[in-house]
Amino acid sequence: MLARQRQEQILRQVQESGGVRVTDLVTQFGVSDMTVRRDIEALAAKGLVDRVHGGATRATERSVDEPGFQVKSEMNTLLKSEIARTAASLIQPGSSVAVSAGTTAYAVAVALQPLKRLTVVTNSPRVEEVLHDPERDDRLVVLTGGVRTPSDALAGPVANAMLATTHVDTLILGVHGIDLEAGLTTPNLQEAQTNRALIKSAKRVVVVADHSKWGVIGLSTIATLDDIHILVTDANLDEEARREISEHGVQLIVAQEN
Rank of each mutant, 00 (worst) to 15 (best):
S32V: 03
Y106S: 04
V97A: 11
V142H: 09
A84R: 13
G94D: 05
S17A: 06
V175F: 08
R242C: 15
Q251N: 13
Q9I: 11
V120R: 07
L43Q: 10
L112F: 11
V31I: 12
I228V: 15
V216W: 02
D169G: 14
G30P: 01
T221R: 15
R4S: 14
L115Y: 09
K213V: 00
R196L: 02
H248V: 04
L252M: 13
S246V: 14
A161T: 10
E135H: 12
L189T: 13
E128L: 14
D24G: 00
E244I: 03
G215N: 10
V52T: 11
T166C: 15
L25T: 01
I245C: 07
T86S: 14
V127I: 10
A42I: 02
I217F: 01
H229L: 07
P157N: 07
E191G: 08
E239P: 02
V36D: 00
L112E: 07
R37S: 07
R62E: 11
I217P: 00
E247C: 06
L219V: 01
A192H: 00
K213H: 02
S201W: 13
P187Y: 05
I228D: 02
D152V: 10
E16I: 03
L184G: 08
D238F: 01
V71S: 11
S201K: 08
Q113W: 00
A209F: 07
L252Y: 12
G249D: 09
V168L: 04
V254R: 08
T224P: 01
V110K: 15
D39R: 06
G156F: 07
T104Y: 03
Q193I: 03
Q193V: 07
G146P: 08
I178S: 05
M162R: 11
H167I: 01
A235S: 15
I245S: 06
I230R: 08
A111K: 04
S17M: 03
G19K: 08
T194G: 05
S100F: 06
I228Q: 06
L79Y: 08
D238A: 12
T119A: 13
G19V: 05
G54C: 08
V158D: 05
I83N: 09
S151L: 11
G55A: 10
N195D: 15
V108P: 03
R62A: 13
T119Y: 00
V130S: 06
T119P: 02
S212V: 13
L78V: 15
T60Y: 10
S100Q: 09
V130G: 06
A153T: 02
T224C: 03
L154G: 03
E16M: 03
R6K: 10
S81V: 08
Q113A: 14
L189P: 00
K200V: 01
T122S: 11
N123K: 00
V175I: 15
T185I: 03
F69C: 04
L25R: 02
V97C: 12
G19R: 14
G249Q: 09
M162D: 00
I217Y: 01
Q113L: 06
D227R: 13
S124V: 06
Q7V: 04
E239N: 11
H248A: 11
R4Q: 10
R136K: 04
E257R: 08
S100M: 09
G145F: 12
E257Q: 09
R117S: 14
E128N: 06
R38Y: 12
A161F: 06
K200H: 14
L237Y: 09
I199T: 13
G94H: 02
E8I: 14
Q251Y: 05
I178C: 01
